[in-house]
Design a protein around this nucleic acid. Structure first.
Length: 474
DNA sequence: ATGTGC
């Protein structure tokens, strides 16, 4: 138990929260709402926790809509921390008869993608500078060629990756299309839900809906905050049989993409925050938490189509970010294979037991599904297998969790020496000096205990670990 | 999270 835990629990009680702790799982309730379903959070001992995140979790569980529907259960992952829309990052909420746009937020289908490549790490590092120069062109200087046909864009937004692929095979455009579309086709089964959600192109901005050749500035761009593209080495394989089936072997080069739906998700998320407010029944008091659910079935349907549209865009964004990297490896190292291991969203609403499950910064951990948990740029990332743990709502953490805010890292008086930031030996490629500091390893909790607690709780099992070689941050 | 926003 952490030393200041009792103090934290007393402080939360003064703020109207009942919190119990069984040494591993906290259960949170609003005192004035004893009928709310429990909100649970799994936390390893000795990690700092923030009171505000507990408050947000309890408020989410207590959420009601005057027209009916219900929150069935709330669970948070060990990396949970306060979110600025009122819902904590790391929240998983099961609802029936209502959907909560804020429980996904604006970063719709933020997620992880992992590839491996059979290139010796020494050969790769020997050409580090040439690789970095090419990738900087793609990611930072706009030299990437990701022209798309308007029919392919429409198919993407409506049907997801399979629709995009079919149209792109018909009318190949851009560097990615001139590469191996057949390989992308074979890999599509390694994308969560096939990367195919039912969207509505009307949600796209006009620039994306032009006729002819579409060059969207957001596609194949990393985005800010904790998003990144990282080249790694497979450091340890723990579950040899499963890793073999997934194509992962010790010593391989790997690369990991963490990105989402960029401006489209922001647009959809903000629009629906407003629409949920506008749809709130006249005369009913607005929830103090600012979390507004939708209950009207027609609105729920429309929201989910909008969310799915942004999600489809995010699937392609990650695919293109990875494809540019794969193409660059082929330029430098010949016809190398760099197969996809898995692509998985951690910010999305999906059907669940007759209702809905919204994950905000939580990785699906369904039985036999790959789970990708990134560490910081100075720590290992984990490839795990989900165990479908029902109490955890089949969800794992989406990282180690922030220990310190961006502000406190960059301007809050943090010790900014390389060693204190944990940046010694870290190869971070970015055009923004403050990004290295905001996202330095010292800004994150240690990933080891966060992962171990989830193994112990029967949520995931470890398959392999990857160590960073270089990290691209926008 | 966001071609960041008050």
């Amino acid at each position: 138990m952490q030393p200041n835990l009792n103090r934290l629990l007393r402080a939360l009680a003064r703020e109207g929260l009942d919190v119990t702790y069984d040494g591993r799982v906290y259960t949170v309730r609003l005192q004035r709402d004893a009928h709310a379903p429990p909100a649970e959070v799994l936390l390893p001992p000795d990690l700092p926790v923030e009171g505000k995140a507990f408050q947000q979790l309890a408020a989410l569980a207590a959420l009601k809509h005057p027209d009916g529907g219900a929150v069935k259960r709330v669970r948070a992952t060990p990396d949970f921390h306060p979110g600025d829309s009122g819902v904590a990052i790391g929240s998983v909420v099961h609802t029936e008869g209502l959907v909560v746009p804020g429980a996904v937020g604006t970063d719709i289908n933020c997620g992880m993608r992992l590839h491996v490549a059979d290139i010796p790490v020494e050969s790769f590092l020997a050409r580090r500078d040439a690789f970095v120069e090419r990738m900087k062109g793609h990611y930072f200087f706009g030299t990437r060629d990701v022209a798309l046909g308007s029919r392919a864009v429409e198919a993407l937004l409506r049907d997801g990756l399979p629709g995009w692929l079919v149209e792109t095979l018909e009318q190949p455009l851009g560097a990615v299309a001139r590469a191996d579309l057949g390989q992308l086709d074979r890999e599509s089964t390694r994308v969560y839900l096939g990367g195919a959600l039912e969207g509505d192109p009307a949600w796209a901005p006009t620039g994306l809906r032009r006729e002819g050749v579409v060059r969207d500035p957001g596609l194949a761009s990393i985005g800010g905050g904790n998003h990144f593209v990282e080249v790694q080495r497979v450091e340890a394989v723990v579950d040899r049989a499963r890793a073999w089936r997934w194509g992962v072997r010790e010593g391989q080069l790997a690369f990991m993409v963490h990105s989402g739906s960029r401006d489209l998700g922001k647009h959809v998320g903000h629009t629906w925050q407003e629409r949920a407010r506008a749809a709130w029944p006249v005369g009913a008091p607005l929830p103090e938490s600012g979390i507004l659910p939708l209950a009207d079935p027609a609105l729920v349907r429309e929201y989910l189509r909008a969310e799915a549209t942004a999600a489809n865009y995010a699937f392609l964004n990650r695919l293109l970010l990875a494809e540019l990297l794969r193409l660059t490896l082929r330029e430098l190292f010949g016809d190398v294979e760099a197969p996809l291991v898995y692509d998985v969203p951690h910010n999305i609403t999906l059907p669940w037991e007759g209702g809905w499950l919204a994950r905000k910064g939580a990785c699906p951990a369904e039985e036999e599904q790959p789970v990708i948990i990134p560490g910081s740029m100075g720590a290992e990332s984990y490839l795990m297998v989900g165990l479908g743990n029902a109490r955890a709502l089949a969800s794992a953490s989406h990282g180690a969790g922030r220990a310190r805010s961006r502000f406190s890292m960059a301007r809050g008086g943090a010790d900014q020496r390389e060693g204190a930031l944990g940046l010694t030996g870290v190869d971070c490629i970015t055009l923004r000096a403050e990004r290295r500091i905001e996202e330095a390893p010292a800004a994150y909790k240690p990933i080891g205990p966060v992962v171990a607690s989830q193994v112990e709780a029967g949520i995931v099992r470890e398959v392999a670990r990857m160590r960073p070689l270089m990290t691209f941050k926008a």
